[in-house]
Simulated scan of single mutants.
Amino acid sequence: MPEASAVYRLGLDVGGTNLRLGVFSDLALVEETRFQANYSAICKQYPPAQAWQTILQVTADAIRPLLNKYPAIQSIGIGFPGFINPQTGILAQSPNLPGLRDVNLGHDLTDLLGIKVRVENDANAAAYGEYGQLGQPAGGLLYIGLGTGVGAGLVVNGKVWAGHHGYALEAGHIIVVPEGRLCGCGNQGCVEQYASATGISQAYADLTGQTLTAQAIAVAADQGDSHAQAVYADAGSKLAQMLASVLKVVDVENVLIGGGVVAAWSLMSAAFQQRLEHDLIPVLRGKIQVHTTHSGDVAGMLGAALLAV
């Protein structure tokens, strides 16, 4: 049972196919629930207005049981994929949730639930969660999230750096293959189309004609499938290409790579390290600490909960 005197915060991590909710007391996860909330499929199935109302109802229905169980919840934060203006909370676009434009999840959920809801870009939320779990390291923290897409977040001097319009660190949309695969953002050749779970699946389909999940492709790679191994190696190389470009602009000490795809990091790491060493400017070589996260993928929920305060 919840402690009567405890103060709780609720954080949500929204992905293209999953919804995760965590109740926190300070940095401690008290309870976690998960939902198969395929927002991407909803956006493809319904017209934009209907898709938005469906997303609102699904999200509110997931939150209400936790509000009932933990009446001491004082704030709700949501990490949501897309370009979110930090001043207005308006989602301008979400490349992996087609059709969603100029909607305000925080405002609309606040009206539905009767409790203030703050929405942050999902990668920014994950970056802040990792920052909190690492004890607020000096030197800045860059987080790269490999999931349905590729996201990034930067924490400097204890604050998430979102940029003037709120769209900073959209590193997943750095072009690594000129005139390459069409991306949901409207450009071609973004790293998201090669190093995300979606991109890995597409690359394997292009090579073999088979459509498999990134997880199934990782299993095939471990079993000796040369096409699967090549796809993951290419994902690692293109991720490093993007990261080297970012680090030439944003000089930080700590880089954390998280998200579901890092479960197959062993298939990517050799090509990643080789390309990173090649592409970094010489003065940065050997000075960047790149690690995969060991937070159990809690960071997105935790960061959203902390940023909501």
Rank of each mutant, 00 (worst) to 15 (best):
R118E: 15
A127D: 04
E130H: 08
P137W: 05
D111Y: 12
Y128T: 06
G135C: 09
P137A: 05
G114I: 03
Y131N: 07
G135A: 10
A138W: 09
R118H: 13
N121D: 04
E120H: 15
L141E: 02
G135R: 11
G145H: 07
T110P: 07
I115F: 00
G140C: 07
L141T: 05
G114K: 07
L142K: 00
A127R: 06
I144T: 14
A123R: 04
L141I: 08
G132D: 01
G129I: 05
V119Y: 07
D122G: 07
G139E: 13
A125G: 12
A123S: 10
L113N: 01
L134P: 04
V117F: 02
A126C: 02
G129A: 05
V119D: 02
A126T: 02
G139H: 03
G145M: 06
V117R: 06
I144Q: 10
V117A: 06
L134I: 04
N121G: 05
L141A: 00
A123I: 06
Y143V: 08
D122T: 11
V119Q: 07
P137V: 09
D111N: 15
T110F: 12
Y143L: 15
L142T: 01
Q133P: 06
A126R: 03
L113T: 11
L109D: 02
T110C: 14
L113S: 10
A123H: 02
A126G: 09
T110Q: 15
L112P: 01
T110N: 11
A123P: 01
G135Y: 02
Y143E: 07
Y128P: 00
V117P: 06
E120C: 12
Y128R: 10
D111W: 12
G140K: 05
A127W: 01
L142H: 00
D122R: 09
D122H: 00
G114M: 05
D122K: 03
L134D: 04
G135M: 10
G140I: 07
Q133M: 15
T110H: 11
L134H: 13
D111H: 14
L134G: 02
Y128A: 03
L142I: 09
L113E: 04
P137Q: 12
I144W: 04
G139P: 10
L113F: 02
D111I: 14
G139V: 06
R118C: 13
A126P: 11
L142V: 00
D111L: 15
Y143D: 02
G132M: 12
T110V: 08
G135D: 04
A123K: 06
D111Q: 15
I115W: 00
E120V: 15
K116S: 13
A127M: 05
G140Q: 04
G114Q: 09
D111K: 15
D122N: 00
A126S: 14
Q136C: 13
G129T: 06
E120T: 13
T110W: 12
